[in-house]
Design a binder for these strands. Structure first.
Lengths: 173, 173
DNA sequence: CTGTTTTCTTAACAATTGTTATTTTATCCC
DNA sequence: GGGATAAAATAACAATTGTTAAGAAAACAG
């Protein structure tokens, strides 16, 4: 069962945001966890005025700054829509309460955390193992949908390079 | 309470390994989780014959290829002692059983997984945010003990560069 | 549809890292 | 301690990426 079907039973409020809407700003604390029905978002950090995208989210994803939500710390990350999005919203209180009382929800969350852990671990490995050019080719092979759907500047920082360098790599391919 | 005190109550077997002992080999499945009493280890992956160190473990750490332990998959990583080590050994069965039945152990594990998640997330951010030279300076500032205790070749791959480049960076500092 | 703004491409040059090989230094083992 | 082995430093050159700037293409708004 997908998280979207699963989460239906919790009767969450649905919201719509246009493209380029910031739903969580770096430096503030997470008050919600979101479930993405339609659209896509990115998570990014500021780095000397330039932003660096660390993750993309597509339909079916659970979206939150987990550190901020779980540790009640200011988020290192900003969450921003790329396309217009339809989201289901769950408050932090409800989230924490469900995590403590609802066994099914707790299991879902543990699994989700583990999956994110794998994701980060693999993503990190990609940086250590391969050079930018190869990382681009790997992304092209494994997630061509990302390259189709996401503006190049975001992909560049996600790959750890500048937009100029990505453009060069693409022609060199 | 540290994990080492906590784990005492489980009466685990203690083992000693000399330096450069492989306790889990890439491609095989994890059968144990270890708790490090003394010494240090590294986790690494093979990359075209060169190894890349992804993590260091010091006294008090829980050591396992979590993906392999939890998903019963072949490990992507090798675990190898750097110094001579004293370890407490817990079998996979015991680990899984405790995780299901022992609330204190389950809580400890959830917390540990979360900490590792943060660790990976921060480590990845370091790659995206900074260049090799700066990563070296950051490591020097935040974890000077690593630079004192760990051979340079391992630190180089941990920083995502070659030993030659690290040597250059160090003199340039 | 058209003008504006943003994104992407291209180019030239600088800076950094990778590669290979050699030398120096440190470590290990008998 | 001394010879063997491994690790680190150094040097020269190649390859890649970063930086800056300018122009082309695409997206957006009225």
């Amino acid at each position: 069962m997908s998280i979207l079907e699963f989460i239906t039973s919790y009767n969450l409020k649905e919201v719509n945001y246009p493209a380029k809407t910031i739903i969580l700003k770096e430096g503030s604390k997470a008050r919600y966890i979101y479930f993405l029905k339609k659209g896509c978002l990115r998570m990014w950090v500021n780095n000397n005025g330039m932003d660096i995208t660390t993750q993309f989210f597509f339909e079916g994803a659970a979206i939150a700054s987990l550190e901020s939500l779980l540790k009640d710390e200011a988020s290192d990350y900003t969450l921003e829509t790329i396309e217009a999005c339809t989201l289901l919203v769950m408050s932090k209180q409800e989230f924490l309460s469900l995590k403590n009382t609802d066994q099914a929800f707790k299991s879902w969350f543990d699994e989700m955390l583990l999956e994110r852990f794998y994701y980060y671990s693999k993503h990190l490995l990609g940086y250590l193992r391969t050079k930018p050019h190869q990382r681009y080719l790997n992304l092209l092979q494994k997630h061509p949908e990302i390259l189709q759907r996401i503006p190049q500047q975001f992909i560049a920082s996600y790959l750890g390079i500048t937009p100029v360098s990505l453009s060069r790599i693409r022609t060199r391919k």
